[in-house]
Design a protein around this nucleic acid. Sequence first.
DNA 1: TCTGGGGTCCTAGGACCC
DNA 2: TCTGGGGTCCTAGGACCC
Length: 426
Amino acid sequence: MFEYDGGVSSGPTILHADLDAFYASVEQLLDPALRGRPIAVGGSARGGVVLAASYEAKAHGVQGGMPGWTAARLCPTLIFVRGHFEQYQRLADQVMDILGDFTPAVQRISIDEAFLDVSGSTHLFGPPAAIGARLRRRVREEVGLPISVGAARTKHLAKVASQVAKPDGLVVVEPGDELRFLDPLPVGLMWGVGPVAERKLANLGIHTIGDLARTPTPALERLLGHAVGAKLNALALNDDPRRVATSPRARSVGAQSALGRRRPTPELVRAVLGHLAERIASRLRAKGRAGRTVTVRVRLAGMRSVTRSATLSAPIATTLTLTEVAERLVWQAIREQDESVVEISLLAISVSNLTTQSVIQLELPLEPEDPHRPGSATGVARLALDSSMDAARGRFGRDAVGYLPATLRRSGGAPDEFRELAERDL
DNA sequence: TCTGGGGTCCTAGGACCC
DNA sequence: TCTGGGGTCCTAGGACCC
């Protein structure tokens, strides 16, 4: 991780730029008939989940992550549109290129938002407020999308400022105004305060960031745990040392698939895990990485989840080995539930404890009699199989091999283009 | 009416080692 | 006979973010 230290400046030189209702705004850009109207990307009035809502829909209470039928009930005129996922990546990259014109210190934190440290750019572009305004204008004129910008001395404050600026606004917090700015804002605007923490804080009468700042740290730690409590108190007092940095390497890779409600038959479990393992392992191989810890998650009907994990003696990146380890863990998890559990609604695999190792190193013999070991005859054969599958995929596209049989696909499942949008670089 | 998919980080208990 | 304290790794669960 490389850090840009803008520490010499005490002005509001950290910018947080955040595209407004990104997926929905792209749909409105692509289809003028949708502009000014309440739309939801993803889901339908009968099922699925809403991935993003336009501001017109948000005005009715529609939010991302909400079941489609709930959204339709809140907003009867809601228009459901299918996503144009390839366009999202292209347009977001175009926006990031524009941000890069203002400073090399850009930390992209998701497809549609980034931090910028502009402390070295003011001699070229003027003060941070001018940079924010210029950046917003360029994104609007060259890409056609609304973007909100917050500028402050720290990342956290810049992020809060961009939330306050939405939609389509710019908020600059001068150093002398920081505490006054934060004081009346709801605690939920802070990074790290979700629904659970918000409810616990409300029970103590803590509603605003000012309330939080006036609460003694030990009380917060008792309520929310050591790490969260201490962090929140520091942030509420605007004591935030984080610098803009390039993204660190990923620490885990995973994939999941919602199934509706299914009885976990051996055939179903094998097919779904094989599909997930293939997605994960091919990503690992493409980057020359491998992982030692395999974690599976089984979500039961009723949304309760159980996880099981195993740490292997050597890192793996082969599809078959990952499938078999995951299969063992999933059946272990299912067996340990009481017998009333007959249906599952999701399977997930994650690989962590990642190492950066070449394929050659993975082939070093360990215990040749164990088929799970990369050095065994079986292990070598599996690597060879994976290599040819990877090659076929490279030539004929990602769906050329290893896709989930149509009979096991659930209508309304997330398209692969959507999955790829969320993937982090390994 | 029934709830996506990609991640990060923290906690707490137990095993194990020195 | 009974026994300390610190560090590291592993596992399961959960909060949170986009």
